[in-house]
């Protein structure tokens, strides 16, 4: 039976980050200063539509910022984690680790 701290840790998980696609996006953005959409699509395997939807959710939560720019004549926007996003991702990892560590062998 899972103990109380395990259940509490699961309850503390950030639902915005917990969705698998958004968790991937947060993890890939965590290790770089910024990445463009092609980077995120190639690493996560998300389609353009899915990527846009998940980035919107993360942006609304204040976890990422999109720097809209151009490379030559082509739009080339870069996404990066905000300080709040970095802190939220660290807290999420900690909570998930606690939850998994609490599981019986």
């Amino acid at each position: 039976m899972p103990n109380e701290s395990y259940i509490q840790s699961l309850n503390d998980l950030d639902r915005t980050i917990h969705e698998p696609a958004r968790l991937m996006l947060m993890a890939f953005l965590y290790v770089v200063e910024a990445g463009d959409y092609a980077y995120l699509m190639s690493e996560t395997g998300l389609t353009w539509g899915n990527l846009g939807a998940h980035l919107n959710k993360l942006e609304e939560a204040g976890y990422i910022e999109i720097e809209k720019g151009y490379k030559g004549k082509r739009p080339n926007s870069m996404a990066h984690l905000t300080p709040a996003g970095r802190a939220a991702f660290q807290a999420y990892r900690q909570s998930l680790k606690q939850a998994l560590d609490s599981l019986p062998e």
Binding site: V31, G35, N76
Partner: peptide, 14 residues
């Protein structure tokens, strides 16, 4: 390469 892998600004460890 760039159209397939995209661009990144590397983090401090990189």
């Amino acid at each position: 390469i760039v159209p397939r892998l995209g661009r990144i600004r590397p983090g401090p460890r990189a």
